[in-house]
Write a protein that binds this DNA or RNA. Structure first.
Length: 1104
RNA sequence: GCUCAAGUGGCGGAAUUGGUAGACGCGCUGGAUUCAAAAUCCAGUUCUUUCGAGAGUGUGGGUUCGAUUCCCACCUUGAGUACCA
């Protein structure tokens, strides 16, 4: 009987499908084991031989675990939302759902033919509404949550609202936007609903915010940081620019520390953990506030300012103060007149002139009554709008603003005063809590201004080494602090920086450039003025966009200081800094630093932070590089948001109305007005009465809130990014058909987490980070039972192509064989690898037919054949080096493909594919088959009564194999177990073993790797059940006990000959036996050895 | 630049509590079988060699009786990240 692999494989694939052999149950006496593959995006090109590598490895492990008595969950599905289907739709008009369904069909066929033991009953597709219902649900959960730093977890937003209602937000320790205003419970209660919603958005774990995003004009969408490679889009390599847009974001930064710490609890590869650590980018140090001295050195010293006191200006208060001073000195005529009346407390209220409130200078103010009086001259139209805005902001802060014109004041001062009196009488004394605390706070700030430049540093211990500060050119303070003399130079520099693209700036790191702003900051301890520079080596996007420059301790600062001749004070004991900066923390001893003198890095850091805190000018701080993740995409083929807008504020659709299905559109391109593709949908409005998606015509937006408001509102036009659906699919597999929950509690509690996850390392900072984030969130909310979803993760390496190259003699149609090419001037041309055999000879007839240019070509051969050149590179259509698994399966069978992919090399390694080598494993399978078909004419022949004489040897072979294969699988060393099988089969063949006692367990060992042939031979042995759950053979060490050892005898460490000796010999007896041996004497040539090393059971080494 | 991998025959690769380097397979060489080819089987295959032997795991040092394995320095390749303060 011949090994007809095609027939055998088809037979068993059918059997497995019909019997649902690999269906997992959600409860079992057996222990559970969850083996997961990263589900594929079903691309139009189908699978090439590189794709199944990880699936084969995980399948072997899953099958092995079944043999070991586990209830194994091994599911598969499709990450079926994505760009390529959409781009295909744009080109052809074909609906992405149709393309996707077709591609999935191809994938399924290709996967099936390789014989994977997937439980297809649990298949998920991220683009199915029944699936993305739960993607939408999780989005809503994130929206309804905030991150409480005190409990260190996500909590329900309603709890936050309760806190706001009872005590305002002063004591809330949450992860939120940076610029949240402080308010009291009273404040909160009188805020408009819209304002309340706006505030809550600043706390929610998914929030709508104007953010600077990576916009790709060609793709017409935003991209996440991890979707950009070298400044261009990962897909297609299109340029990417920065652009401000209102987008949904995910507050992943809230989880930065837990994402970092969690890495210590999971068994993932070091390189992958390292990638995530880098991406999170934790740095511990201090934030330090450097007050700004607005004047160049010498003109005015710190401490001589008017106390800012109750003044509440922002970062630029010092400048506004100057301006106010100026205005006070030069009042308009009307202002002067009115001030004359107000200053003398004629109205029994204290007024202040040209006073700073927030970021505004108001003409007159009575702080006690919060009444502001403005006197306007002739105002421009344009200013009316700004004044209105200003009034609104001030009124939000409980000020009342009244305005008079110059004419009114000058013409009829009495009635003006009368008006003011009236207003004063109506205003109660207001001294709100927040105002009080504001006052207290500002009383404590240093005299030189309420604010300054905040920097982040990891080396607060070097603070006495600061000799200048550097701001990013984009820093918001730059324009405010620059002195008139420096303005021109600074503007020119900013312009020059802005012109350079991100890429240029990255590429050119050597050129040192920067400009002095003319302004100075004050050192927190020495109170010395420090010049403030701008330079493009400081990045606006990291930390605060400003650094305290310590040239003696940081090479970039050092280079900058050298270049611009700034002093480089040395604050390190016994260190020479004449050539370069000294950045070693370990050896640091601080000097010339007042109270830090003599301390090491650790001590000095602690002390410096303590002293800064005493001054109120700094604190210990941890900074993370991880940014919040933008969650909106301007695409069609993605999950729609369960969101509609009332008054511009986002509203969530209740869970029971999910899923919100993707609407039909005419065109998949952005609309003419620049809206995302969903802007083309005509039925895309939410009816809050019927809770249905309805026609856009019904939207009554113009009368929102009014009598005509029918409760029908526009839906969100963006869709979710690719990583949304893949961030929880591993949980969904546990209970994929559940329509009421993402997965039932029972299913989640039973399966818990993934025991083994196999996939590519390219997802290190994308999918693998986002999914950990969602898992932790779901854990906080009590949805899932564990906060890390994958215990162990292995990255399979990539299988590379081996391109074939022919050499055309330049300017001719002649092609020269590889060995002769050096005598000619040639061009390399890649040709289809499928025409090349194992000896690198190309099939010339096939080549002639392959492309017309070869039709009449002339070939200069080596001997009788044309040898091609080889190049290892990524498998890709453009290199003609793609090998299709369909062809391999047809020619050699799935078992051969599986074995060969494993045999190529270690799983994690990148390795080239060369189809030629597959004959080796294919021959092995044929030999294996033969081992069971040694009867007449190759009929099946296995005996259950063992021939005594050879069974001992066969048992040794078997148990050696059991031991090795078991170790190999546990260590994911699949390549070596294939070798082990070959050795076993070679040995058993040599032994002419026909015994069932040996050949049956052997099949179980092989079955995870080559399941089809194993099933077939197993059934021929008389079994009616699938081999898949047969018990894994038990290793018995007693079969491997040896009585003697073939000792290698080495001289000075070089092995010269071997000597067979009994294992129970003593050290001395071994030495005696070796020394007595003829060859030993020969080697020594009469010399006496200095020393003889005997390691019983291992080696003998003779020195001398 | 930094971080993490990795460097072994013509090729993919094996071997690490330090103990016979090159398992297994491809390719190649020779032979058997065949009219011939395919297929199959057998033998050989790290390099050099004066056939005694000598050298050899990226390079140079070191530790050791003994190093592919441990230590130091360097080179090369791949991956990630990048003026991260």
């Amino acid at each position: 009987m011949k090994y007809d692999f095609n027939e055998v494989e088809a037979k068993w694939q059918k059997y497995w499908a019909e019997n649902q052999t690999f269906k997992a149950v959600n409860n079992s006496e057996k222990p559970k084991y969850y083996v997961l593959d990263m589900f594929p995006y079903p691309s139009g090109a189908g699978l090439h031989v590189g794709h199944p590598l990880g699936y084969i490895a995980s399948d072997i492990y899953a099958r092995y675990k079944r043999h070991k008595g586990f209830n194994v969950l091994h599911p598969q599905g499709y990450d079926s939302f994505g760009l390529p289907a959409e781009q295909y739709a744009i080109q052809t008009g074909q609906h992405p759902a149709i393309t996707t369904a077709e591609n999935i069909k191809t994938y399924r066929r290709q996967l099936d033919q390789i014989g994977f033991s997937f439980d297809w009953s649990r298949e998920v597709r991220t683009s199915d509404a029944s699936y993305y219902k739960w993607t939408q649900w999780i989005f809503i959960q994130l929206f309804e949550s905030w991150y409480n730093n005190d409990s260190n977890k996500a909590e329900d937003i309603s709890g936050l609202v309760t806190i706001f209602e009872t005590e305002g937000n002063t004591n809330v320790n949450a992860v939120s936007d940076d610029n949240v205003e402080v308010f009291s419970a009273e404040d909160w209660k009188v805020f408009s609903s819209k304002k309340q919603q706006e505030i809550l958005l600043q706390y929610r774990l998914t929030y709508l915010a104007e953010t600077e995003v990576n916009w790709c004009p060609v793709l017409g969408t935003v991209l996440a940081n991890d979707e950009i490679v070298n400044g261009v889009s990962e897909r297609g390599g299109h340029p990417v620019i920065r652009k401000k847009m209102t987008q949904w974001s995910m507050r992943i930064s809230a989880y930065a520390e837990r994402l970092l710490q969690g890495l210590n609890t999971i068994d993932w590869t070091d390189s992958l953990k390292e990638s995530q650590r880098n991406w999170i980018g934790k740095s511990v140090g201090a934030s330090v506030l450097f007050p700004i001295l607005s004047f160049p050195r010498g003109e005015e010293k710190a401490g001589s300012y008017t106390r800012a006191g109750y003044m509440t200006g922002g970062n630029n208060s010092h400048l506004l103060l100057e301006r106010a001073k100026e205005m006070r000195a030069n009042p308009t005529q009307a202002e002067a007149v009115l001030w004359e009346q107000l200053r003398n407390k004629n109205l029994e209220a204290k007024f202040r002139q040209q006073h700073l409130i927030g970021d505004y200078i108001v003409d007159f103010v009575c702080l006690k009554k919060r009444l502001i009086i403005e006197v306007d001259g002739k105002i421009h139209e344009s200013q009316i709008e700004e004044d209105a805005k200003r009034t609104e902001i001030l009124e939000n802060d409980y000020y009342k603003v009244i305005r008079f014109t110059n004419e009114e004041v000058l013409g009829d001062i009495e009635s003006v005063l009368e008006n003011i009196k009236k207003e004063l009488a109506q205003r109660e004394s207001i001294q709100s809590k927040s105002q009080q605390s504001e006052q207290e706070q500002s009383e404590q700030v240093p005299p030189s201004g309420a604010r300054g430049i905040e920097v982040f540093t990891t080396r607060p211990d070097t603070i006495f080494g600061v000799s200048f500060m550097t701001l990013a050119p984009e820093h918001e303070l730059v324009s405010q602090i620059t002195t008139p003399e420096q303005k021109e130079a600074v503007d020119a520099y900013i312009l020059a920086t802005a012109k350079r693209s991100e890429r240029d700036r990255m590429a050119d790191v050597k050129t040192i450039s920067g400009v002095f702003t003319g302004a100075y900051a004050e050192h927190p301890f020495t109170k010395e003025p420090i010049p403030i520079w701008i330079g493009d080596y400081v990045l606006a996007g990291y930390g605060t966009g400003a650094v305290m420059s310590v040239p003696c301790g940081d090479q970039r600062d050092y280079d900058f200081a050298k270049h611009f001749n700034i002093s480089i004070p040395n604050i390190f004991e016994g260190v020479d800094i004449s050539e370069e900066a000294f950045s070693d923390k370990e050896k640091t001893i601080i000097a010339n630093s007042d109270f830090l003198n003599g301390m090491n890095y650790k001590k000095a850091t602690k002390r410096a932070i303590y002293e800064l805190e005493q001054l109120g000018q700094g604190e210990g701080k941890t900074n993370y590089r991880l940014r919040d993740a933008v969650f909106s995409r301007q695409r069609y083929w993605g999950e729609p948001f369960p969101v509609y807008y009332v008054n511009g504020m986002p509203q969530m659709i209740a869970k029971e109305h999910l899923p919100i299905k993707l609407p039909e559109v005419e065109k998949y391109l952005p609309t003419e007005t620049g809206e995302p593709p969903l802007g083309n949908a005509t039925v895309w409005a939410w009816d809050t009465n019927t809770n249905q998606v309805v026609s856009n015509d019904l939207i009554t937006q113009s009368t929102v809130g009014g009598n005509q408001d029918k409760g029908i509102y526009p839906l969100e036009l963006n869709t979710m990014p690719g990583w949304a659906g893949s961030s929880f699919y591993f949980n969904r597999y546990m209970d994929p058909d559940n329509d009421n929950e993402m997965a039932s509690k029972e299913a989640l509690d039973y399966w818990q987490d993934v025991d083994l996850y196999i996939g590519g390392s390219e997802h290190a900072t994308g999918h693998l980070l986002y999914s950990r984030f969602w898992q932790k969130f779901l854990f906080d909310k009590g949805v899932v039972p564990v906060d890390e979803y994958a215990k162990k993760l292995i990255n399979q390496g990539m299988i590379l192509g081996t391109s074939a190259i022919v050499y055309r003699i330049s300017g001719t149609n002649k092609y020269v064989s590889k060995g002769l090419k050096d005598s000619y001037d040639v061009e390399e041309i890649r040709v289809d690898v499928n025409m090349v055999n194992a000896s690198d000879e190309i099939d010339i007839e096939a080549l002639k037919k392959w492309q017309p240019q070869f039709n009449n070509a002339e070939f200069i051969l080596e001997g009788s054949s044309y040898i091609v050149g080889r190049e290892v590179e990524k498998m890709s259509k453009r290199w003609y080096n793609v090998v299709n698994p369909d062809a391999i399966c047809a020619q050699y069978g799935a078992d051969s493909l599986r074995l060969y992919e494993m045999f190529l090399g270690p799983l994690e390694q990148y390795k080239p594919w060369n189809t030629a080598g597959i004959t080796g494993v294919h021959n092995f399978l044929k030999k294996l088959w033969k081992l069971y078909h040694q009867g007449e004419n190759g009929t099946f022949h296995v005996t259950s009564s063992p021939p005594k004489e050879r069974l001992g040897e066969a048992l040794k072979t078997l148990h050696k194999t059991i031991k090795k294969v078991e170790e190999d699988i546990e260590n994911f060393s699949f390549n070596t177990s294939v070798s082990t099988f070959m050795i076993a089969v070679n040995e058993l063949t040599a032994q002419k073993c026909k015994s069932k006692e040996i050949l049956e367990p052997l099949l179980i060992l092989i079955s995870p790797y080559a399941p089809h042939i194993a099933e077939e031979l197993y059934s021929q042995l008389g079994h009616n059940e699938s081999i898949s759950t047969a018990d894994f053979p038990k290793f018995d060490a007693s079969h491997l006990v040896e009585s003697s050892k073939n000792y290698p005898i080495s001289f000075n460490g070089k092995m010269r000959f071997t000597l067979e000796l009994p294992l129970d010999l003593s050290k001395d007896a071994i030495e005696a036996a070796v020394m007595a041996h003829e060859k030993t004497k020969e080697q020594l040539g009469g010399r006496t050895p200095k020393k003889v090393i005997v390691v019983p059971g291992k080696i003998v080494n003779i020195v001398g």
